[in-house]
Design a protein around this nucleic acid. Structure first.
Lengths: 177, 177
DNA sequence: CCAGAATACTCGGGCGTCCAACTATCTGTC
DNA sequence: GACAGATAGTTGGACGCCCGAGTATTCTGG
């Protein structure tokens, strides 16, 4: 988790109000930076929602968001393989997370570990034929739920991605140029 | 973890480009809904960034985002206590997560479990004096890092919260009215 | 050419989140 | 008043994420 495997939203809306709006109201009464508090909390919650929707769509295929992302990344490459380190960079996760993800994909026969041809330190993850087939079907399912964002229009999606790109750039996700 | 305790961004920007922009480019060549893919991925990554920043700020106090949120929620109430179930609703997390969070806060003497006065099924989490003191100091630290969003302006924060509110409303986080 | 630094990956541990299942208790209805 | 159903919380298991530390290999400067 950020996050384990989840299928649905944790709790039903037993509340009669927006919990984040309420938190911001309370916050503004006492401290500073209420807007940042509300935005940060919204991001945390949005991640839960997206993850739950996508994981739910992937469950029938025995995949999770993390494993599916790795599979798709490999299927995008020319050779169907990538050093684990490169995968970590592209997926923006810690090296140990890649090890974990590939462990599980390999156990399911969707990926194979093969030695790097020239660098004996490195290991390549190679997608299998079975992995390619599953990736295609799973991807259709993820598209079908619109990545957990069916409620947003094209302009909202663009706005979201744009604002978050500023955040990522400032945090060093990629050279701000 | 959603997500364990993290202090910094996982990998340095060894890449010369934006991984999400690159993924969208590749995606648009093959499938549909590239905008949703990019937005969803951005949300996932933004959550990691925010969590890492806030957890880092809270580390000196022995707290995490989840535990700090719970502590602040209790400190906002009139009596300094709340049934665990209510906390789950407000924090928008699964009941078992609340149990876990309160377990750890209680182990540190920041919270106490007390029986509900009228409902013997329920348990109240009661913030202690020590908990109140720590919450104040920890909150200052979280404000100091701007909730992990120092790069965003007031308008960007508002835009972000607004778009994500649509998403949450559509997903049933609260009555859309 | 070789020692020290850097890089690639793995292992063990900790944390947070969810689900399924279970116990205890309350509530509504006949 | 009794029973079925709903509600509150916990336990055990699975997953993903991170960090610190350790091994193997490659790179680099004197």
């Amino acid at each position: 988790m950020v996050a384990g495997v989840s299928t649905s939203t944790p709790s039903s809306p037993a509340l009669g109000f927006d919990p984040i709006a309420e938190a911001k109201r309370q916050w503004d009464l006492r401290w500073e930076r209420g807007s940042a508090m509300a935005a940060a909390t919204s991001i945390m919650r949005a991640q839960q929602i997206v993850l739950a929707a996508v994981d739910g769509a992937l469950r029938p295929f025995g995949l999770t968001f993390a494993r599916w992302e790795a599979l798709v990344l490999l299927s995008f490459t020319r050779t169907g393989s990538l050093p684990l380190g490169k995968m970590g960079e592209r997926l923006m996760v810690h090296p140990t997370s890649v090890t974990n993800t590939i462990d599980r994909l390999e156990a399911d026969g969707l990926v194979e570990r093969v030695p790097h041809p020239t660098d004996r330190r490195a290991t390549l993850a190679q997608i299998t034929a079975k992995g390619r087939r599953l990736a295609l079907r799973a991807t259709a399912a993820v598209e079908a739920v619109d990545f957990g964002l069916p409620a947003l229009g094209e302009d909202q999606l663009a706005s979201l991605t744009d604002v978050l790109r500023h955040l990522r750039a400032a945090t060093g996700d990629f050279p701000a140029r």
